[in-house]
Structure formats: C-alpha cells, structure tokens
Design a protein around this nucleic acid. Structure first.
Length: 491
RNA sequence: GCGGGUAUAGUUUAAUGGUAGAAUGACUGCCUUCCAAGCAGUAGAUGGGAGUUCGAUUCUCCCUACCCGCACCA
C-alpha cells in the first residue's frame, strides 16, 4: 500500500522532476543541507529577488549595495559573532540534554559545587592542583569558581566526570566539551596560516553597516534612509533541516533602515507592516502568515525589539523574515573597533549621533520554499488530478507557453512567429508535442500563467486563445495585440 | 550531536540469496482541431564501500543522503 505522501514530499519531488531544485552533488551521494537551483528554480529565485529589490529600492529613501562576502576579521569581533558564535557545548550521554559550558554552573546549586570541589581536591593530580587551588581559594562565588574551572581545558575534563547532569542526575556521562563555531572559516590568500584566517559572512547586514557613511555620503541621503542588499551568507549550523529551510549556505535579502534614535519605534512598526504586505502582494496566502514577537528576555544581544514573519509550512510555522530594532549597537561597535566615527550630523538639530537601525532580514531560500509550498495545488478536473503551481505571474519562471493546436495547416509557422515576437520581452516556452491538453497540464505544474494556442480561427482572423492557468478559461486576442495584452497582465 | 525511519529508472513503486517488473514521465514516429486520448517504438534503476556466500539489490557492518522527533538555532 502506498502511503499518502506529505505535501512537502510532493513538492520536493515536483521540484526535482520539473527542475526547480536538485540535491547538491547528487551523483556523489549529495552534500548535507546543500541544494542546487535548476532551470525553473533559478528563474523563480531571480524573480523573488527582483520583485523584492524593486519594492525596496525603487523608492527615494533606499539605496542598494552589494558588499563582498569576505570581510575584515575585525568586523566579526565588532559584531559579536566571534564571541557568540563559538560556544563550547557538552551533551549528557544518558539523557541527551545539551548544555552550554558557560552556563552549566548556573544550573547547579552552591552546596553541590562545594561538595564537588572537596571531592575533586582529593583526586587531583599535581600538575593541575596549583591552578585549581588558585581559583578555589579566590574570593569568587561558588558558581563563578565553577565557571572558571570549566574554562580550563586541563581541569574541566576531570571535573565534568564528577559532575551530575542537572537534568537527569547521572554522573560521568558528559561528552568532552566541543566547540561549536557557527562561522565558516577560510584563508585569505593561498597560504593556510592561522593569521590569514577569515570568515565567510554569517549575515549580510555587516557589509551594510560598515558602508553606512560611504553610501550616505555618495548618495547624499539624509536620515531616515535605508540600504538594501541581496546576497549569500553562511552558517555552520549544527543540523540542517526541512529541505531548503535550514541550510548552511543561504541567501538573504536585507534592508537596514537608519533612523534617529527617537524614531526607532515608529519605523519598526512601519517596516513590520511593509514586510508582511510584500509577501501578500506576491500572492502568498495571508492565513499562512503571522508575526511572532520575540519576548524581551529572548532578544539577541543587539536588539531592542524583534519580530519574525512566519509562514505555516507543512512542518509548522517557520521564520521567513526577521524585523529587528538593532538600536545603535552595530554602528557603535564598529566605531569602537575601527576607531572611525560612525556618527551622523543632523543639519536641522545640529546634533551629532549614531543612528538607530531597523533591520528587515528576509530569507530568499526560505521565501522560495514558502512560495513553492503555498502555490502548490491539486485539483480534480474531469476525474483527473491537476497539479498546478498558482504562482503570482510576476514570480512564475515562464510567463507564457505557445502551442500550435495541431502540427499542420500552417499553425506551427504562426506559432513560431508569435514566439519570436514575444521572446525578447518575456520568458516564453514553445511546445508542439502531444495533445494540447497535455501541454496545458505540463505548464500548470511549472506555474506558467498563460498558454497561447494557435487554432483554425487564427488562420482566418489572426486571433489566438490565451488560456489562464488558474481558471483554465480562454479569451481570444488578436496576435498583434498579444504582447501588449500579456505585459498588461504582468504589470 | 542523540534517537527512530527510509534509500530500486526522472517520479511513484513491485519482487527476489541466482543481477529486477510496472505505472507515470521523457524521447522518436504516426494520429490528433482545446485540457494528462490512442497506436507503434526507444532509452532509463537496486545511494557508496566492505563482509558472509559458488553467487548479494536481498543477510551483516560501516559511510552518505533524506524524512520524523529531541537538542541547538547570538
């Protein structure tokens, strides 16, 4: 018995069959969490980015930027990524709980810690007793002492073997501390020396921040204004998951809006609404979109407020865009680390200050997946299942397909002529294989919004039929009016 | 990282310790005058590596990938 395929499985299967997404390096067995975009996928991806770009930058107050993926290592010290992206972690092999080494001490009572120290000092070897005693006899609290001891790689192994898991109480089942560095490292230049190590950017935002004054000066913008950028970013996630949802290489579309500190809340709200509106305008089902506000105690180190725009995927709600109030954290840090002033001078108030930043950070790959899942439809038509991607025409990889109804009576010649007329302006597809019904259905699966058919009537009056994907209804249009007709529809 | 599951043509699947059958899709041709019609033909698969065996797609182990949980996700 064939079990019912999930929507996600169907979409993954369709994506491969039709050339949207392939597994990376598939002939070698694939590469964990990496995916390639095929002929239709690259069009959809490009259209998503293009529409976003138009929405964001075809306005007076937003400029574009394309910063390098490789940046000065100090950028990531300033941003906090070096510090926050490298947490040593331990797992309890008994109950599978995972702990950050630097916060483990907080979960153990002082009484237990003191008992532990006593036990430890009885088992200690000479080579580490000196540093151990130095810490234990210091003026710190028990928790702080414990934290310090855990930082010492000579001591922590033995110490951990005597520590009970705060979750299940089992002793001696911790793994060795492992460092999780979420940033990809590489080398600048062909010599693999430690001092040449740099990172692939884990977010595109920093490329914008370090260019804040460059862009502001060159474009003569005044606050408030934004800088938009689309590009790849890389994170060494512990686990990849859910097809395109969590991958180690991904693309972001970000806009950083620089504002006066007192205006931050106003623009945070403004961009929240603008952002969710964009997804709806691109045809996404509003019922599957929601905001998810981050509670204050869960905010990242840089943020004063944060909201995710979530889409309801088959596997649950998932973030497709984040809107953050990053305050003046990033620019202040860059001022501190670079020694270069990042202040803005306001002519009206004659004040000098570091602007606040409202960030909209969208995931291109995640949006791609959301658009794909959202547009996937199965319908009953004459007892058959019709699979159709109801993509917004602006996002559809192919805008129109051209069919001669039959391959005779001069229909193919007219069809080829029409194809030639449209091709410079639109991505079109010519198909004369098999019955016309089959060709319609094939295009439905690709999400092609319009199918143009040349029939007998075309021979006498020059009109063709335009069949609309979602309604399957046809209208007759004169072939000389066709381009105008389609462009109008795609506007 | 941990636990569970899965892996056979592009896709969905069947079967078997003696190297695989189908549906669908694709391609070629015929036929087709509007929604996956028909006919004829063609190509196409056991994820990778070891082991057991006379012989492994089938049994065992390892690896890889994907899916589902947990944990992680500044």
């Amino acid at each position: 018995m064939a079990k019912e395929q999930s929507v996600l499985e169907k979409v993954v299967s369709l994506a491969k069959r039709k050339g949207f997404v392939f597994q990376s390096s598939e002939i070698y067995g694939g590469l964990n969490g990496c995916w390639d975009y095929g002929p239709l996928g690259v069009e959809l991806l490009k259209n998503i980015k293009e529409e976003w770009w138009k929405t964001m930058t075809y306005r007076e107050d937003v400029e574009g930027l394309d910063a390098a993926i490789l940046m000065h290592p100090k950028v990531w010290e300033a941003s906090g990524h070096v510090e926050n992206f490298t947490d040593p972690m331990i797992d309890c092999k008994q109950c599978k709980a995972r702990f950050r080494l630097d916060t483990l001490a907080e979960q153990i009572s002082d009484k237990k810690i003191d008992k532990l120290f006593k036990e430890f000092s009885e088992n200690i070897s000479d080579d580490i007793s000196e540093s151990f005693n130095e810490i234990v006899n210091s003026e710190l609290t028990s928790t702080e002492k414990f934290e310090k001891l855990l930082e010492d790689s000579d001591i922590n192994k033995l110490l951990l073997s005597m520590t009970n898991c705060p979750n299940c109480g089992t002793k001696g089942e911790f793994t060795e501390p492992r460092s999780f560095n979420l940033m990809f490292k590489t080398f600048l230049g062909p010599v693999e020396k430690t001092e040449n190590a740099i990172y692939l950017r884990p977010e595109t935002a920093q490329g914008i921040y370090v260019n804040f004054l460059n862009v502001q000066g060159a474009s003569r913008q005044k606050l408030p204004f934004g800088i938009a950028q689309i590009g790849k970013a890389f994170r060494n996630e512990i686990n990849t998951k859910n097809f395109l949802f969590r991958t180690r290489e991904f693309e972001q579309m970000e806009m950083q809006y620089f504002v006066k500190p007192e205006d931050d809340e106003k623009y945070f709200e403004y961009w929240k609404e603008k952002s969710i509106e964009w997804f709806k305008q691109m045809g996404m089902n509003g019922d599957k979109l929601r905001f998810h506000d981050h509670p204050e105690d869960k905010l990242a180190h840089y943020a004063k407020a944060a909201t995710d725009i979530e889409y309801e995927f088959p596997f649950g709600w998932g973030e497709i865009e984040g809107i953050h109030n990053r305050t003046n954290f990033d620019l202040s840090r860059h001022e501190e680390y670079s020694g270069k002033s990042q202040k803005y001078f306001d002519e009206e108030s004659k004040e000098k200050f570091i602007p606040f930043i409202i960030e909209t950070s969208g995931g291109v790959s995640r949006s791609f997946m959301a658009f794909l899942v959202d547009s996937y439809n199965e319908e009953e038509v004459n007892g058959e299942t019709r699979v159709v991607l109801k993509l917004h025409p602006k996002l559809a990889p192919v805008k129109a397909a051209i069919f001669p109804l039959v391959n005779k009576d001069g229909m193919p010649e007219i069809a080829r002529e029409i194809e030639k007329d449209l091709r410079p302006f639109l991505r079109v597809f010519y198909d004369d294989k098999g019955a016309v019904g089959r060709r319609y259905r094939r295009q439905d699966e690709n999400g092609t919004p319009y199918c143009i058919t040349i029939d007998t009537q075309t021979l006498s009056d020059g009109t063709i039929t335009v069949r609309e994907r979602d309604s399957m209804e046809q209208v007759r249009v004169h072939k000389d009016e066709l381009l105008k007709f389609l462009l109008e529809k795609l506007k």
